[in-house]
Design a protein around this nucleic acid. Structure first.
Lengths: 139, 139
DNA sequence: TGAAAACCACCCACTTTTACCCACATCTAA
DNA sequence: TTAGATGTGGGTAAAAGTGGGTGGTTTTCA
């Protein structure tokens, strides 16, 4: 279970620390790719392969643009001995990652945000609609 | 697993670098042919043979135009010691490859694009419909 | 048919990027 | 208080990417 929020900064070499608490769940290497709302997503390899399999099983020419969205941007990363990962420039660009970065846990995957963008999104959240969505769970 | 996006340029001798990360999956030599959306596709030899076999098993007179589309344009390429490939003029023409080229991974195959055409396609992608397609996977 | 031109496979050289290693400050928990 | 874990910075060797030379073969054209 990936939970919590962690703030890091990208160093001059482009390296980004990845939360120590996430490493066990994420495995030795994992997949980072584009995600919605201009952030990045990190999936354990198995989860990603499972999703990829589902997508490919629809047909190699079906959902071509979805395949391209997910796979062309994806990269397999392996944290170094200190636990840092190196993201391709394209991915950093997509999520507007320059210096301050926030990584959040989201149960089975992690999200990587520009810290400022994350904070803005948090501030803009409408608690009433969130309350309604929780109620709709019938929990 | 072929993943990621790589930008290269065709040099004056017509050589095109092929991503180092793809070489293991693609094998010593692989097949490049025409593909949909005006790009080229590169399949590992085994994958291509498998697809060809499936196509031919439908009957030699069935899908004649599909056979012609895929096989007439196909070429087997073998990267040089630096990892570069040489594409026939017809194929370069089909994908409008002149100088700037983008190669993307798509799990079991790679796609070769004119960089500008690729960027336009990316920009034209509608994230909402991508989100719907991902949800439809029931992942 | 023969010479010039084009093509291609095979080298080598150089620059940039990445991977791998070590050092150290800070934090956490026993 | 101290040992281990965590986060940050930097040095260095290897890999990746790019450019070009050379010699042999094929193609072109007078």
């Amino acid at each position: 279970m990936l939970l919590g929020q962690y703030d890091y900064s990208i160093d001059p070499k482009g390296r980004l620390n990845f939360p120590a608490k996430f490493r066990e769940d994420m495995g030795d290497s994992f997949i980072v790719t584009r995600w919605l709302d201009d952030c990045l997503v990190a999936f354990p390899k198995e989860e990603f392969q499972q999703m990829a399999q589902l997508l490919m099983s629809k047909g190699i020419t079906k959902n071509r643009d979805v395949q391209r969205f997910l796979f062309a941007a994806a990269t397999e990363v392996e944290p170094d001995k200190q636990g840092r990962i190196l993201l391709p420039a394209k991915l950093r660009e997509h999520a507007g990652l320059d210096k301050e970065v926030t990584i959040i846990g989201n149960m089975n995957h992690a999200e990587i945000w520009n810290t400022q963008a994350w904070n803005q999104r948090q501030d803009a959240m409408d608690t009433e609609s969130i309350a309604q969505a929780i109620d709709a769970l019938d929990f």
